[in-house]
Amino acid sequence: MLKLEIDKLAKWFGQRKIFEDINLTLEIGQSAAIIGPNGSGKTTLLRLIMGLSYPTRGEVIFSEDGKKLDFDGYRKRMALVSPYLSLYDALTGFENLRFFAKVDGRAVSNDEMNEVLEKVGLGGRGEDFVGAYSTGMKQRLKYAVALLKDPAIFLVDEPSANLDESGRNIVRGIIRAKKKDSLLILATNEKEEYELAGQFCQLGG
């Protein structure tokens, strides 16, 4: 069973404390919401969980059946959706999906790609260049990339950023489905979203 343990985690930027004493334990089928005002360190905490930044103190451990996983061990089972993450504008929607699946080690069929694009409300737009997508469409495509990976660890920063009402409903549907079969972490201040999570991690308060 895949497990995340965050133990007494602290992050300082120079003399400025971002957060400290963060503790969290999650397994597959469990979810947590990181909540807090702007600048409280929600995205920083996500980066620490992803292993893309060093903590000042404490540690983040992913393990499976008691055995600690290294970066590549959990990275290949992790997906992130965030407004700070971009896809390739010079490639089409299909090319982006095919590229991210392929570098992850999987060849995907057109049917699979069409299926995820339909799920996120981008059916029929796969041949368009991502550079021509609206911000909301780009956000939907990030969910399509994540869904195609079928992650066991799903991190979502500001889940409904840049999305219209229909997009928000799609995303909440995805979150409800993924919380059953993945280790889900949301970083959000939207009540309707953090209420979907089973645990809370309050920052900046």
């Binding site: 990275r75 997906a79 992130l80 700070y84 971009s86 990030k142």
Partner: peptide, 13 residues
């Protein structure tokens, strides 16, 4: 600069 490095880091070795 394009912000694609983050997803690339999580996508492959």
């Amino acid at each position: 600069e394009a912000g694609t490095a983050l997803i690339l880091k999580l996508s492959t070795e």
